[in-house]
Design a protein around this nucleic acid. Structure first.
Lengths: 238, 238
DNA sequence: GTCAAGAAAAATATCGATATTTTTTGAAAC
DNA sequence: GTTTCAAAAAATATCGATATTTTTCTTGAC
């Protein structure tokens, strides 16, 4: 345990770990954060030699982290011509959203069918935690944004936590990560007259009432609204 | 072009390439074939040192190929404890089949909605090629099995080739590969009184008639029957 | 006889060096 | 001016050696 931490410091004693158990994982996380945050621009070339210096990590290790990101479709591998940050586009966002809607609904239907008391309790708890931060968010504290993202994610995860298909959940996760790249456009656009809190409440109510048809429709609308808010920004500066 | 071929022979002149452009790809393909064929048993440990000798390939290269297979869910990575062939189980097969049914139907609905003349022609052509080999298959020529697999795959691909979502097709491909591992159980079970040819014909007819509801139902039944044929074998010897 | 601790062995993760490929540059011919 | 070819430069892919971790085996105490 403690040994792990020691290992992840290099000879000069610089700390590297941030919860990563492996150097590959560390490289993977940093790379991912830089891609999602836009520091590594969409479509840009990922020069291994350059990144090697930036992250202080061996080239092979970097390659493996890059390979992992290819599976997430955040990076594309071009035969023998190295790696590149996956490009973004309105078309791509529409495709992600379309798939996310499907996966989310599949998972939600399954959860509504099978969920037990504990599942219901989890939803209520996650919604409460989200509500509390939304109250404070109106103060305009930007620092809360990340925390809100996190609780928002946990709320949506709670809704579908009774789904029994490992694969549905896995695909849903992948798609969520892919959509994360577009999220900063969403933040730019601001609330835009939406009542997100109300949407969440309605989704929760329909879910707890075991009304799959309504819950799915609400979730789809929820996602469509987010897409609609981002679309114009994406069309302008891609 | 020719240079590539030369490179993929090792110093002793042994040929390595089989359409692989990269050593990683070569390792990936061989590994995959050995996993699908059962030479590397489900749940078994993948000792890098051992495989290194078997495929005559460096350890780092092997690791990257293994990482690629993790994305396909054919291999699982266990933290810092190496790699392992993903285990198989009836439960897993049921999950794969469930997802495949969903993906296939999503893709089929989209194709039926958008398909043009060329799409229709492609389906007819693929069905014809499949029919011809099915006629000869009744002779009991085992050697044809692989060829039948191939044409069967192409027929199902043709049905959904008008689908516009890159991601639906991508997920479908991944799931198809995952189900491939179970196919040898299907071969063991034999035809089992099924009229596969008739099923294919019915699916094609409904699709070309643009009847999405019927086509999807038939596809789901088609897959369920395959699952049903495999299930008892899998329960017996997992 | 069982359990625990520590040492030895095996396996994995990481790295930087080398071989190979792709891209860029520059000069000559048209 | 632009096209072609070859050499140089840059970048990538591959490898085997080394560092680290996990597992196995041995020894000794209870």
């Amino acid at each position: 345990m403690t040994a792990t931490v020691i290992v992840l410091r290099d000879k000069k004693g610089n700390r590297r770990a941030e919860g990563a158990k492996t150097l590959i994982e560390y490289a993977y996380q940093r790379l991912r954060r830089d891609i999602l945050g836009g520091a590594l621009p969409p479509g840009g070339k990922l020069r291994i030699e350059h990144l090697r210096g930036r992250y202080e990590i061996g080239s092979s290790t970097l390659r493996e982290a890059l390979t992992l990101l290819v599976a997430d479709a955040l990076v594309v591998s071009e035969g023998q011509r190295g790696f590149r940050v996956a490009p973004i586009s309105l078309e791509d966002l529409q495709d992600v959203t379309r798939m996310r809607k499907m996966m989310e609904c599949l998972a939600l239907r399954d959860s509504i069918e099978r969920g037990d008391d504990q599942w219901e309790a989890g939803i209520l708890a996650a919604h409460h935690r989200l509500s509390r931060i939304e109250e404070r968010l109106s103060d305009g504290a930007e620092a809360m944004a990340e925390s809100w993202e996190n609780r928002n994610d946990l709320f949506h995860k709670a809704l579908i936590s009774a789904c029994t298909s490992r694969r549905i959940l896995h695909f849903r996760d992948i798609l969520y990560h892919q959509s994360e790249r577009y999220r900063r456009f969403s933040l730019m656009s601001g609330p835009g007259g939406r009542d997100i809190h109300g949407e969440h409440r309605a989704i929760m109510d329909a879910t707890l009432a075991r009304d799959a048809a309504v819950a799915c429709r609400l979730v789809e609308e929820h996602m469509d609204k987010t897409l609609a808010a981002m679309a114009p920004l994406l069309a302008a500066a891609p």
